[in-house]
Structures are given as C-alpha cells and as structure tokens.
C-alpha cells in the first residue's frame, strides 16, 4: 500500500467543483469580463495607432531610446502593409491581435496580483505571525512547477483565457507580496517614530508615511510581477489562452521553427517594453522619495 496523497488532492478538487461551483463560476465571469473588456479597448484603435500610443507612453514615462524601441518593435508586430509604386511593402508580421490578447491577459493577471499582493504584503509587514504564515505559501506558489496547478485550474475554470489568468496570477503574485512587505519594513524607524510622535492614527501612518516611503520598492515588485506574468504566456497557451503563446506552442507541436521564433520574438518585444516602462515608473516615484541625509 502506498499513501494516495494525489488521490486525496483530486478528491478535494472534485469536491470544490461540486460544492463551490457558483463561486468558481463567479470568478470565471469576473476574470473573463475584465480580460475581454481590456482586449476590446486595446483593439479599438487600429494597430498602427496603438503603436503610436505605446510609443508616446514610453517617451513620457521612460526615455527616448525606449520610445524608439517601442516604435519599431511594436511596429514589427502589426499587420501593416501597403503598396507604393507597384511594390508591396510588408511592415509587420501580422501578430497584432494576439499581441493585444496577451497584453490584456498579463494586465488582468497583474492587476489581480497587485490587488491581492499589496494588501497581503502590508499585512505581513505589520504582523510577524502573518509574515511567517505567508512566506512558505509564497515559496510554494513560486517553486511549484506551473504545469501542476494548470490541471486543477482547468478542472475548476475550464479551458481558455481564465485558467491562464489564474495560473499567471498564482505565479506572479509572490514578488509583489514580498517587496511590499520589504518596502514597508524598511521605512526608517525615525520616520515612523516621528509620525507616531505627532499623533498619527495607524491609518494615517500607513497612508501618509509608510506606503509613500515604501513606494519605490513596491513598484519594483510590480515590475517583477508583470515580467513573471509575461513568462507564463506560453504555458497559458497550452490550456487554450489565446495570445503570443499560441504560435510558440504550434511551432513546438508542429516543429515549425519560423512560427515559434516569431511568437517568441513578439514576447521578447512586449517584455522589454513592459520592463522598461514599469521600471521607469518606479524610478520616477523613487526620485520624488529620495532619501534624506
């Protein structure tokens, strides 16, 4: 006889599905709606116009170099082509729709990661007991191979984008919790004492002192969350989330090198754009929080 741990886990999932079906349906609706709404927004304008929007964003938040990269990189993903003097010019690889689908998946998952991760991080910073409890859970979430929780995710949420968002959420939340926790704990003891000595309530302390002083660190966590979310794109494609992961998966299963390469390139371009922009946003917040002394 062997211990049937896996069997028990399967039973647990079945039980959850049977008894908390309404809950999971609710989650599916919320996530599904958010993702598709975001997708609609991102696809509202034609690809070339969105490229200009992203370029402007990169310019405003980051540097001209990032803007330049965004312009050409994103341009490469559009389906822009035109005929001039009888010659046909092809500008893009024609991946715009799935790029925006990927972006909406990442943004949705990251949004939920932050919505959960930042409050949990703050709570863990305030209470050592919570910190001790949360730590192993985070380790578990980060080290468990994502394929493993894809299975229950599919059982509970079906195939498609929603289980992709859920799996991405699980994988991408830990850095947000950790860095929020760290950021709040790192706020200088004297600043805390000062705030206390002027009669701050705990809420005033958090909102007026701790959170703003921790903001650069928290934003570093946001950056990591977004990048980890992006790294889940291919895995999400395995369970039917549409996006840039699809050409990669197809390339793999059908041994089509060209297709896999193009999908991968798209992911890299998106990754560099998201990384530089979120990082620059963090640095901007950091500059206004330059340490005294």
């Amino acid at each position: 006889m062997e211990l049937d741990l896996g069997g028990w886990f399967a039973l647990l999932i079945q039980w959850l599905k049977a008894n908390l079906g309404a809950f999971f349906d609710g989650v599916t609706t919320v996530i599904g709606t958010t993702t598709s709404a975001l997708e609609d927004v991102l696809l509202f304008l034609p690809g070339w116009a969105m490229v200009l929007v992203f370029t402007a964003l990169a310019w405003w938040v980051a540097t001209r170099g990032v803007a330049l990269f965004t312009f050409f990189g994103m341009g490469l993903l559009t389906d822009l082509q035109f005929t001039l003097f009888g010659t046909e010019f092809v500008i893009g690889m024609g991946y715009w729709d799935i790029t925006m689908q990927t972006l909406s998946l990442i943004v949705t998952a990251s949004l939920f990661s932050l919505l959960v991760g930042i409050p949990v991080g703050i709570w863990a910073a305030k209470s050592d007991a919570v910190d001790k409890t949360v730590r192993p859970i985070l380790d578990f979430m980060q080290t468990m191979p994502p394929f493993v929780y894809l299975i229950p995710a599919v059982v509970l949420f079906g195939l498609g984008t929603v289980p992709g968002v859920i799996a991405t959420f699980i994988f991408a939340t830990p850095p947000c919790v950790r860095l929020t926790n760290l950021g709040i704990r790192q706020v200088s003891e004297e600043a805390i004492e000062a705030a206390q000595s002027f009669g701050s309530t705990p809420t005033q302390m958090l909102v007026k002192v701790e959170f703003p002083m921790a903001l650069p660190t928290i934003l570093a966590g946001v950056n990591q969350t977004v990048l980890l979310a992006l790294s889940m794109v291919v895995i999400a494609a395995l369970i039917g989330s549409s996006g840039l992961g699809q050409p990669v998966v197809e390339g793999l299963t059908q041994l089509r090198i060209a297709k896999g390469f193009e999908g991968g390139l798209g992911i890299v371009i998106l990754a560099i754009f998201l990384d530089r922009v979120t990082q620059a946003a963090g640095e901007k917040a950091g500059a206004s929080t330059a340490q005294t002394r």
């Binding site: 004297e190 600043a191 002083m213």
Partner: peptide
C-alpha cells in the same frame, strides 16, 4: 501627542516624500 508634546530627532526623521512645507504641516494635518 497632538496637542501637548512634540519631538525632534537626532537624524531629523523627516519625511523624504514630502516637501519642507509638507513636513512642517504634518502634525496639524493629522
């Protein structure tokens, strides 16, 4: 703490994310 006593710190304990004015008005703000 709000009405009777205030404290000054060795390493100043200022709030780096607030302007000089923002620092000074802190006690009144809370």
């Amino acid at each position: 703490r709000r009405t009777k006593m205030s404290m000054v710190f060795q390493n100043f304990g200022l709030f780096p994310h607030r302007s000089v004015l923002g620092n000074v008005e802190y006690g009144l703000e809370v």
